[in-house]
Design a protein around this nucleic acid. Structure first.
Lengths: 352, 352
DNA sequence: CTCTTGTGCAGGAACGTTCCTTCACCAATA
DNA sequence: TATTGGTGAAGGAACGTTCCTGCACAAGAG
C-alpha cells in the first residue's frame, strides 16, 4: 500500500545477492575474519549497490550495550521539561552531550514525568539524574534495573543502599560557595544582604539558604530571604521589587535563582537604585552575558562543564566495569566584577 | 570479579523460578494471553521478588521500532553542539522533547560531527535535522537507510529526490516576516535601517538578507548589512558598535542573530544612543526576557513551539506509515513593543 | 602418499523478547 | 460415546545481528 512497505534490506539479502553466507558479509563489512581482499571488495560493492545499512537495534542486542546515556532533569517534576528556561540546564545538557560524545556515547533526553516507570523502556546504559527529589523513584527504578546512575546531588543514600550498586554522584560545596560570596559582599561594605531563592525542595536551594542563615546568625544579623513560588522571571522581578521597596531595604542582593543579569539591572534601575553605588549585586548564573552588562555582573557559577565531565566519566567507569571514584566534590567558581566591587562611596541610605 | 558481573535476571529466569514457561511470564506481565488471575499474580510476585526488568533492546528488536527520534543541529557543523548559546536552539529542543513525549517518543541528541556516518549506529525511528547544510550528508545517509527525516528548511531537494522517500519539511515565510518588520520600522519613521546577520550559509540568513536587500532596492535605499563572523556575543556587540559609529549611522536596527535584548540595549546606551528616541530596535529572538526590558523590545519570533509540534507530527506520520502533509509553511510572530514604537520626536541626527 | 598447517568460507547458536501455533484437558452438547 | 468449545499453558519461530565452531580444500613437510 504505502511506499514504506518496501522492506529494508538485511544482511541476508546482501548475502544472497553476493552469493555468500551472512558470516562472510558481516566479516567483510566489519573488517573481521579471514577474507581475501577480492571477496571483501565484492561484498562491499554488493552491499553498497543494495543500499544496505545494518540494523542498529539488532547490533545493540548482540553487543549487549547501547552506547546511550539518559539525562533527566527532576527539579520541577510536574513540568515536563523546563531546562530551556534556565541557563544552567541548557549549558549542562550541552556539556553532557559533548562529554558523552567524547566517550562515544549518545544522549537521550528523558521525560521527567509520565506513566509509571516508562523511562525503563529506553535502552540506556546509564543515566544522569539532575536535581533528584528526595527518595526519587526514577533513581530507584534504574538502580533496580541494574542501570548505573550518577546524580549531581548526593542525597540519595536511602534509595541507593538497598540497591545492588549504589549511585555515584557529583556534588558541590554549597556552604563554601555561599560563604565566599557573602564574605566578599561584607568586605565590600554590605551590611544588609538579601538573597532570592526558590521555594523548592531541591538540594541546592535548601543547602544554600541554610548556609546563608548560618552566616547571618554568626553575625547576629537578621536574614532577608525572598522565595519565588515557581519558574518564570516575573516572579523573580516581583521578589526583587518587594525586597527593594521594603521598609529597611538591603544594600546588597545575592540571587540564587537564574535571572538574566542585564534584565535584573534594568529592573533595579527602574526601581531607582544604582549598582554598585546603592546596591551590590552577585548573581548565581551561567548566563554568558554577565561580563558584558553595565556594570559587569559578579557571578557564582556551578560549572556545568566540569559537572558534565565528571558525571559522564563516573558513569562510563561504572558502565564499563571499572572501579572508579564513588563521587566527585567540586567547588563553585566565583567571579568578582564591578557589580559587587567596592563602590567609591557607601550607600547613603536612610536607616529607618 | 567486579560486582557488575552479577548477571541481569531475564524472562527465562523468572519462568524457571515460577515454574512456568516464558510465554506465560510474558503474557502475565504484559496483560496478554488467557491466564487466570491466580497465575498472573503469582508470576508478577515472582518477577518482582527477583527484581526482573525487561530488556529494552530486545523488546525494541522484536517490536521493530525504537520510539526514539534523533535531533541534530547543523548550523555550525564544525562546533560539536552549540545550541545552548542560542535561545532558539534551546527552546526548540525543549519543545521537540515535549512534542515527542506527547506522541510517546524519546529524543536523542545527535553528534553533528564525528567519524563518517556514526549517526547511523543509533537506533532511531526518525530524525529532525535543524538547519541542514546544502546537500547535507547526514540527511542523505538517513534517507538512504530508510529513516524518515524532517528538516526545518526545505532546501534539500537534490538529496531527497534520489531517495526512496523524500524528506518532509517545516519552513517559514522569511520574506514575509522580514518585510513585515521593515514595513513597520518604515511606518514608524525609520529611514536608515541596518541589519545584523551571520556569515553562514544557513538558509534562514541567506533568505532574510535577500529579502532585506530586495526591500531596500525597491525603495532605492542602500542596504546596511553587518555580518558577524561566528557564534559569540562579542561579535554582535562589535558589529553594532561598528554600525552606530559609522559616518552615516542608522536610525533603526534589525538583528537577525540571537542577542540578549537587555544586553543589546545596554550596549546601545553605552554608545550614547537611546531606544526608541534615537534608534528603533527589532530583535529576532526567542529570549523570554524581551517584554521585560526597558524599553520592552519588539521581537520577531520563529515560533520554536509550533515548529517542533509540526516537525514531530510530520515525523510521526511518516514513521507510522500515514500519508500526511509533505511539509508545513509557518509564519513568524512579530511582536511590536516600545523599542520600535513611534517615538515622540524623530531622531534629530545630523545627516552627513 | 600421509600428516600437518593454513586459508576461505558456511552453519548455527546466541542476545532477550513477543507472539503465533499447538496441545492437553475438562465440561457440555449431540 | 464421539464431537465441539473453551481454557490454560507450552513450544518454538522470528526480529537482525555477531561470533564461535567446524568443514573442505590446497600447499608444504615428512
Amino acid at each position: 500500500m504505502s511506499k514504506s512497505d518496501r522492506i529494508r534490506v538485511r544482511l541476508v539479502d546482501v548475502a544472497r545477492a553476493a552469493g555468500v553466507s551472512k558470516t562472510t558479509v558481516s566479516d567483510a563489512l566489519n573488517g573481521a575474519g579471514r577474507l581475501p581482499a577480492a571477496t571483501r571488495e565484492h561484498v562491499q560493492k554488493v552491499a553498497r549497490s543494495l543500499g544496505y545499512r545494518p540494523n542498529a537495534t539488532a547490533r545493540l542486542l548482540r553487543r549487549g550495550h547501547t552506547m546511550l546515556l539518559g539525562v533527566a532533569a527532576r527539579e520541577y517534576v510536574e513540568t515536563p521539561w523546563v531546562y530551556a528556561e534556565l541557563a544552567y540546564f541548557g549549558t549542562l545538557v550541552t556539556a553532557i552531550t559533548q562529554a558523552a560524545l567524547a566517550h562515544g556515547y549518545g544522549i537521550v533526553l528523558l521525560p521527567t514525568s509520565g506513566p509509571d516507570d516508562c523511562w525503563l523502556d529506553m535502552p540506556l546504559d546509564g543515566v544522569f539524574v539532575i536535581d533528584p527529589v528526595e527518595g526519587d523513584p526514577m533513581v530507584g527504578d534504574f538502580l533496580a534495573a541494574g542501570v548505573p546512575v550518577v546524580s549531581d546531588r548526593r542525597a540519595l543514600t536511602e534509595v541507593a543502599i538497598e540497591a545492588r550498586e549504589p549511585s555515584r554522584w557529583v556534588d558541590f560545596d554549597y556552604d563554601g560557595a555561599v560563604r565566599q560570596a557573602l564574605d566578599h559582599l561584607e568586605a565590600a561594605g554590605a551590611e544588609r544582604i538579601a538573597i532570592v531563592t526558590a521555594a523548592t525542595t531541591a538540594c541546592f536551594y535548601q543547602q544554600s539558604v541554610g548556609a546563608y542563615q548560618d552566616w547571618c546568625a554568626e553575625r547576629g544579623r537578621g536574614p532577608r530571604v525572598a522565595y519565588i513560588p515557581g519558574p518564570g522571571l516575573q516572579h523573580v522581578l516581583n521578589a526583587v521589587e518587594g525586597l527593594l521597596n521594603a521598609a529597611d531595604p538591603p544594600d546588597a542582593l545575592f540571587t540564587l535563582v537564574e535571572i538574566n543579569p542585564a534584565l535584573l539591572l534594568d529592573a533595579i534601575r527602574k526601581l531607582g537604585r544604582s549598582v554598585p553605588d546603592d546596591l551590590l549585586l552577585v548573581c548565581t548564573t551561567e548566563d554568558p552575558t554577565a561580563p558584558y552588562t553595565d556594570p559587569p555582573t559578579s557571578t557564582l557559577s556551578y560549572l556545568p562543564g566540569e559537572t558534565a565531565e565528571a558525571a559522564v566519566s563516573l558513569l562510563v567507569d561504572s558502565i564499563e566495569g571499572r572501579e572508579g571514584d564513588q563521587g566527585r566534590l567540586l567547588s563553585a567558581d566565583f567571579q568578582i566584577r564591578a557589580s559587587s566591587a567596592f563602590p567609591a562611596r557607601r550607600p547613603a541610605f536612610p536607616s529607618p
